[in-house]
């Protein structure tokens, strides 16, 4: 079995923990669990007949005042930057986080626009279309609440981690 470390990053309350919870346990809790520092979960996947165990490092919400501990990125095979499509600000913060990650480590970075079950913010599209998506390996739209796109996103991340 191959194990891969994946870091989940993003601004506060974009749904990182909920995404992991949805992926690992298949359930969603409306009650938001505040991440303290880092929360780790694991999940096994089958990718092209290879069993991969993803160690998901759910790193505390990052905002403009507090960065994240770059040591958490050590040994990561990929990073997922989660943004909240109802809050354009979270997207901007995601871009910043992406920059910080790239400074630290050369790994595939995935952009996940969460809360797809809710309507996008008005300025979302204009922000997303400013050509920054090239910073990311791939971008996905997910809903931690309905589970839509979650499996697919993690599967793609796992594939990318394996082929690193």
């Amino acid at each position: 079995m191959i194990q891969k470390k994946i870091c989940m990053l993003g601004a506060s309350a974009v749904g990182k923990t909920s995404l992991v919870k949805q992926f690992v346990e298949g359930i969603f809790s409306d009650k938001y669990l505040t991440s303290i520092g880092v929360k780790i979960d694991k999940k096994k996947l089958e990718v092209d007949e290879t069993t991969v165990q993803l160690m998901l490092w759910d790193i505390e919400g990052v905002d403009r005042y507090a960065g994240f501990n770059p040591k958490y990125l050590r040994g990561a095979a990929a990073a997922i930057i989660v943004v909240d499509q109802t809050r354009t600000q979270s997207f901007l913060e995601g871009i910043e986080i992406c920059r910080l990650v790239k400074l630290e480590k050369e790994i595939p970075i995935f952009l996940v626009a969460n809360k797809s079950d809710l309507p996008k913010s008005e300025s979302w599209d204009s922000a997303a279309d400013c050509g920054v998506t090239s910073l990311f390996e791939l971008s996905f739209s997910t809903s931690a609440k309905t589970g839509e796109g979650v499996e697919d996103m993690f599967l793609n991340v796992a594939k990318a981690a394996l082929n690193k």
Partner: peptide
Amino acid sequence: TDGDMVSAMLTAINDFVAD
């Protein structure tokens, strides 16, 4: 215990302490 989780958490704590 879940060795995988313990390992990861220990590393995280260690990183946290170091930082």
